[in-house]
């Protein structure tokens, strides 16, 4: 058993700036999508990142996965700076850190069957497995995420949004990663499906010993699933605290405003 307080991933002074295209004769401004962000991810926790649109929360996910090139700062994996990684080490890192996206249909290739979508990561990292071993693993995963076997040869457009999101989760988990980044995983789903996916993520978290980074604009979802929360505004972290602390006594005015803006489902007596 690993040390519970072990630090898996640390992000130091991460910045992502890019010039705003301001037209031919205007001076260009710099947009600070992510500005001097630092945080640590501890083994086994669920870290929530909450913020409104344009706060840079999705950019942070993409920066961690090196899908976009950072302006400056340091991302470390078990204390080792990712910048110093060789191609092979980078590939190992990618195997260990996986992502699921918001749009359940957009994140699946429409021309591929569910089976081959889930299989893709196995082909990349576990090419030595036989066809049958791979298939066994795929069916195992489909079972774990609650997809019935007969969806194996189906195509994404034949599935519901919730089922597609489950396919995305199965693909992310098939190589047994240690970190799963969830970028607004339930925002596009209906309320009852949201609850199912959140339950599933919680179950899989303990089953696969996952550490989660959970990005959402929805405070109720964050509250339901996260241990710690970063509140982001315009690329800057304004609070980084335990979930209960944050919701029970928010310090920053912006956090207070966010929390009080959530409409309550309990109607006033009229």
């Amino acid at each position: 058993m690993k040390d519970k307080s072990e630090e898996i991933l640390s992000v130091d002074n991460l910045k992502l700036y890019y010039p705003e295209s301001a037209g031919l004769f205007k001076s260009s401004n710099t947009i600070k999508a992510v500005d001097d962000v630092s945080f640590k991810l501890i083994n086994g926790e669920t870290l929530g990142i909450v913020g409104e649109s344009g706060s840079g929360k999705s950019s942070i996910c993409r920066l961690i996965l090196s899908l976009v090139v950072k302006t400056s700062g340091k991302i470390s994996w078990f204390g080792n700076d990712l910048d110093g990684y060789t191609k092979k080490e980078m590939k190992d890192f990618r195997k260990k850190v996986q992502i699921i996206f918001q749009d359940p249909y957009g994140s699946l290739d429409p021309r591929m069957t569910i089976g081959s979508i889930i299989k893709e990561p196995l082909d990349i990292f576990n090419g030595q497995l036989s066809k049958q071993e791979k298939e066994e693993k795929i069916f195992q995963l489909m079972n774990d995420v609650g997809l019935s076997n007969d969806l194996f040869n189906r195509y994404p457009h034949e599935l519901s949004g919730g089922q597609c999101q489950r396919v995305g989760i199965a693909r992310a988990l098939i190589n047994e990663p240690s970190v799963l980044i969830c970028d607004e995983p339930v925002s596009a789903l209906d309320l009852s499906i949201q609850a199912q996916i959140l339950d599933l993520l919680n179950d899989l978290k303990s089953k696969y010993n996952l550490t989660l980074i959970f990005v959402s604009h929805d405070l109720s979802v964050i509250k339901a699933i996260c241990d710690k929360v970063l509140v982001l505004k315009h690329g800057i972290i304004i609070e980084n605290r335990n979930t209960d602390d944050l919701f029970n006594n928010p310090k920053d005015d912006y956090t207070k405003k966010l929390i009080s803006s959530v409409p309550s489902p309990i109607p006033l007596a009229k």
Binding site: Q194, S220, F247, I266
Partner: peptide, 20 residues
């Protein structure tokens, strides 16, 4: 919303994260 009669309404309301 406070005393739903239909099963589906009850189910929908039960899906709301409890803290709110």
């Amino acid at each position: 919303l406070t005393s739903p009669k239909d099963e589906y309404t009850k189910h929908l309301l039960s899906c709301i994260p409890p803290w709110l």
